[in-house]
């Protein structure tokens, strides 16, 4: 077990194994997202209340799921980095943050656009949208803090601490915002919480969610590999690897 963890922690080992894993996740992501999109856009029946505008759910919900999951993944990576000093964990956390912020933005944008046909306005202080907006600020804070340090080690540790503090606060923020929303707006019509969605409606949603998760894993593997090259450029194994590629090109 320990040997495995430390092996996983070695950038060289990770660089090798991620090269093998990456294509599978890209393929899964492409297959799932294309299938889910076609199904959700063209084949799923229209909603009896919202008509075709409900099809926004197939991008809104996966993005919102991913936005929250990425923050948790980032905090867990931060914890692994702080406890076991595994650098790959911090590299992964560093590349996850922008994707998480992008997903939060997608969830916010699709929610706002969905609001026009549903509520007749671009923005409602709906509980889900409000929590998403706060999550976006949390992401921006982590990204900005990492960028503010000149020493990479300090930046990594500071970002890890902030991600952990944030992840403890996310459920608290979520519950207090939910509570605040029900107090001020007696639950009129929330975007996605509805009783018993028929199978042909939620199955494409499940496929899209899985597709988004595969995309996240594939992209994180890819960008972590780049981050490894960037940080380990002076290491022997990277230079050997590059030399090998240069020789091959001749």
């Amino acid at each position: 077990m320990w040997a495995f963890i430390h092996k996983l922690g070695s950038p060289k080992w990770f660089y090798g194994i991620s090269a093998k894993l990456q294509p599978w996740f890209w393929a899964a992501a492409a297959l799932l997202i294309v299938t889910g999109s076609l199904w959700g856009l063209a084949f799923a029946p229209a909603d009896y209340q919202q008509g075709n505008s409900f099809r926004i759910i197939y991008v809104h919900v996966p993005a919102a799921f991913l936005a929250q999951s990425i923050f948790i993944a980032m905090a867990v990576s931060g914890l692994v980095f702080m406890v076991w000093k595994i650098k790959v964990a911090d590299m992964a956390a560093a590349v996850m943050a922008p994707l998480g912020a992008a997903m939060t933005f997608v969830a916010l944008f699709s929610g706002a656009v969905w609001g026009v046909p549903t509520w007749g306005t671009w923005w409602m202080w709906d509980a889900r949208l409000t929590s998403m907006l706060i999550l976006l600020f949390l992401y921006l804070g982590v990204i900005a803090l990492r960028g503010a340090f000149t020493s990479r080690d300090s930046a990594s540790r500071a970002a890890s601490v902030l991600a952990m503090v944030g992840v403890i606060n996310i459920p608290i923020i979520k519950y207090s915002v939910d509570w605040w929303y029900t107090l001020h707006q007696p639950a009129s019509f929330t975007l996605t919480s509805r009783p018993a969605m028929p199978t042909e409606m939620w199955l494409p949603l499940v496929i899209m969610v899985l597709g988004f998760y595969s995309f996240f894993i594939a992209l994180t593997l890819m960008r972590t590999r780049s981050e490894i090259l960037r940080r380990e450029a002076n290491k022997r194994w990277v230079q050997d690897l590059v030399n090998g590629q240069v020789e091959e090109a001749r």
Binding site: I134, F137, L140, G141, A144, N169, I173
Partner: peptide, 8 residues
Amino acid sequence: LLVLPLYI
């Protein structure tokens, strides 16, 4: 930026 979201 770091602190205000946590104050909510």
